[in-house]
């Protein structure tokens, strides 16, 4: 304390050594950077998501025409129409498309969780040297083309492939009452779509699960075990509930893109009962009906976003209740 006093006195006679309190300078030093860093992702979302979405929303309120652009709006207020959305309810293909998508995405998410959870847990509990190797193996498939991997599956699942024939003969040996013939129809089924989605999106399930599981405090497991819980009870009571945020994050990362998935169902799925991604693409490129296609896209967004918003609302209310 004594050392501070002389310095303060010296400072009075030598003002140039004190930093000048320019408010713009302080703003530049602290606030500007903070604001810029926060603003960048918001601007990105504004230009590359909100703006295009508003365009799609506008197109969905128009009427298709033969010409460029292939859409026209009314001249009088309210300029738009709701007809395209009404049309979605009138043709079975749309709601069946949504239903197919939601069902396949749900089944895929379930299996991705079933396969991904033990993998994530195994990686999180592995020794630190193994952990990095195993994580690398999880993301390794990303280093080859997604399309190439889908085609590889098409090759494997096809009726004449060694994989299909081999699997069929093994199953026929053990379950002769169930499997007959020399092949099983796997391509162009919902099974193939679910398999393709689970295979492709598995890393998106594993990585957030791993991030959550890796952070869990292992002494909690010991405490539960100390209080009489056998290992599986420890998992049920401690690990599973505490990894719920990871489960939700992983499930969303799989479910949302899987619902709108286009490539996998187009290449591996059933032509007669398409998922909504396929319906959307056909509407744009086959029918060239932009307004209906846009309506399909907007409705898909609503189908995905509204449940998440409801979930978040309840989550926030739960959090508020917990803190009082």
């Amino acid at each position: 304390m004594a050392a501070l006093a002389p310095t303060a006195q010296a400072g009075q006679g030598d003002e140039s050594r004190l930093p000048k309190a320019h408010s713009w300078r302080q703003w530049l030093d602290r606030e500007a950077w903070r604001k810029a860093i926060i603003a960048i992702p918001y601007l990105w979302l504004l230009f590359f998501f909100i703006a295009p979405f508003l365009i799609v929303l506008a197109i969905s309120a128009g009427t298709s025409q033969v010409g460029i652009p292939p859409v026209i709006w009314k001249d009088t207020f309210p300029f738009g129409t709701f007809d395209n959305y009404v049309f979605l309810t009138q043709d079975d293909i749309y709601w069946q498309g949504y239903l197919n998508s939601l069902r396949n995405a749900a089944i895929s998410t379930f299996f991705a969780l079933l396969i991904g959870y033990p993998m994530a847990l195994g990686i999180a509990r592995a020794s630190s040297t193994w952990r990095n190797v195993l994580l690398l193996l999880v993301i390794l498939p990303f280093w080859t083309s997604f399309l190439l991997r889908v085609y590889a599956w098409i090759g494997l699942l096809g009726n004449t492939s060694w994989f299909n024939r081999g699997l069929t003969s093994i199953l026929a040996t053990f379950f002769p009452f169930w499997v007959t013939g020399d092949h099983i129809q796997m391509m162009n089924t919902n099974f193939a779509v679910v398999l393709g989605i689970v295979y492709s999106y598995l890393p998106f399930m594993i990585l957030p699960l791993y991030a959550t599981l890796e952070k869990l405090d292992r002494t909690l497991d010991e405490a539960a075990m100390d209080l009489g819980s056998k290992p599986w009870e420890v998992f049920k009571d401690i690990t599973l509930p505490l990894s719920l945020p990871g489960i939700i994050a992983g499930a969303m990362l799989v479910f949302i893109p899987a619902t709108g998935e286009y490539v996998i169902p187009s290449l591996m799925g059933r032509g007669d009962s398409p998922m909504i991604g396929r319906v959307l693409a056909d509407e744009f490129f086959q029918n060239r009906d932009w307004p209906v296609a846009s309506a399909v896209a907007v409705a898909l967004l609503a189908v995905l976003v509204i449940p998440i918003m409801i979930y978040n609302f309840f989550q926030a209310r739960e959090a508020r209740r917990g803190s009082t």
Binding site: D217, T219, L220, E222, A223, D237
Partner: peptide
């Protein structure tokens, strides 16, 4: 436990 290891949930 030293960290108490209370179950947070």
């Amino acid at each position: 436990f030293q960290s108490y290891a209370l179950f947070p949930h």
